[in-house]
Design a binder for these strands. Structure first.
Lengths: 198, 198
DNA sequence: TTTTTTATATATCATATTGATATATCAGAT
DNA sequence: ATCTGATATATCAATATGATATATAAAAAA
């Protein structure tokens, strides 16, 4: 029931439509921590309305017509209930590290450096965004939310530091030792060569 | 086609069964970056075999019977092809930060401190695991993989540092200023109080 | 001014994925 | 001898994604 709760969380800041919620999740800073697709947002909104956690505002027909939802008392209580539960440990899907984990000895390191430079560009952009937060039209974020932003900054700065160091290490040929408790390195290289020559 | 590739990546280190692959993904260190369920692993193995990326070894009937798969030449080429493609930017689902983002002014900060302490415990455990890597029966990880491990360490150290600082800030009442470009704080508090008193 | 493009807005659906559960076997403990 | 827990595969309902369809308002271009 986590997408539901993140929808309640967005609505706690003020009336929003399904589209608004999606934008909020795509908002690069929120995207650092969360996300959901239209295909889940709209059905969930209906479900949350049926259960009485939220209600739709009468649409004032000024400009574009959209359906704004707001939290009910029940919705607020549910949100606060959820906030009190111990958060589950984060789930991360990171292709860069997955790829690095299966980078074999004689594969081209220039390609890896390109991946790292690309990642650097993206993370720098995100860091700039997070740092210049108030300029980005975000109307309101409370003190505790700011603590989360501080973490996002630190994390990105650490990542950028690691990228620079790593590129240097690769280019100077100063790589860390492989962990090879059972002398598998040689076996693996020959196995791979053999397969590729078949 | 990303789960498929991460399966190929695991197989590149040696013959594995579906169960082995799942264990590898659950292996706390791999779990830092990736994961997949049995419900996707076994069907994908079948599919990969049909397509000719992997093949099943004749099961030697010593001890427990399991089906070990290995990469074909086509599988190796596909893996290397994938490794060369620019990795997509990481997707993170982090309930702690989602919750912090919707922590409202008058909610109990002691609960938040508990969340942070719980997170600290888990991240310390993971850091210990990553640091003591070679002791954990991992047979082989190559140089580039070690660079990824170094990043995992730095990230966790940064997180722990942030947690300590953050708890201190909360307990000393020294919280950062809210971002409130349109004076929404007051409006939000009264709106919430009103709803909860209905 | 008219046309085109882009952003807003909701909805749907095939496909992918999870999480849970079922089933069975083997190794080690009681 | 029996029980428990780890190994191993498989399946499936429920959930979620990603893509696409549709429509309108606003902005830009012609």
């Amino acid at each position: 029931m986590s997408i539901e709760h993140s929808i309640l969380a967005v609505l706690s800041f003020g009336p929003s439509s399904g589209y608004d919620i999606k934008s909020e999740f795509e908002h690069e800073a929120s995207g650092l921590f969360w996300g959901a697709s239209y295909g889940s947002i709209y059905p969930k909104l209906k479900k949350l309305e049926e259960t009485g956690y939220i209600f739709a505002l009468e649409e004032e027909d000024e400009g574009r017509k959209k359906k704004l939802y707001e939290l009910t008392k029940k919705g607020w209580l549910e949100l606060e209930q959820w906030l009190g539960e111990t958060p589950s440990y984060p789930i991360i899907k990171d292709e860069l590290f997955m790829k690095m984990g299966s980078w074999h000895r004689d594969m081209d390191l220039k390609i890896l450096v390109n991946h790292l430079l690309e990642r650097k560009k993206q993370s720098e952009h995100l860091l700039r965004f997070v740092t210049e937060w108030p300029k980005n039209g975000v109307s309101y974020i409370d003190q505790v939310g700011m603590l989360a932003i501080q973490y996002a900054k630190m994390r990105l700065e650490t990542e950028l530091l690691w990228i620079d160091r790593t590129i240097e290490m690769i280019q100077s040929g100063d790589l860390p030792k492989a962990q090879d408790t059972r002398g598998n390195a040689e076996k693996m290289i020959t196995r791979r060569r053999k397969t590729l020559q078949e």
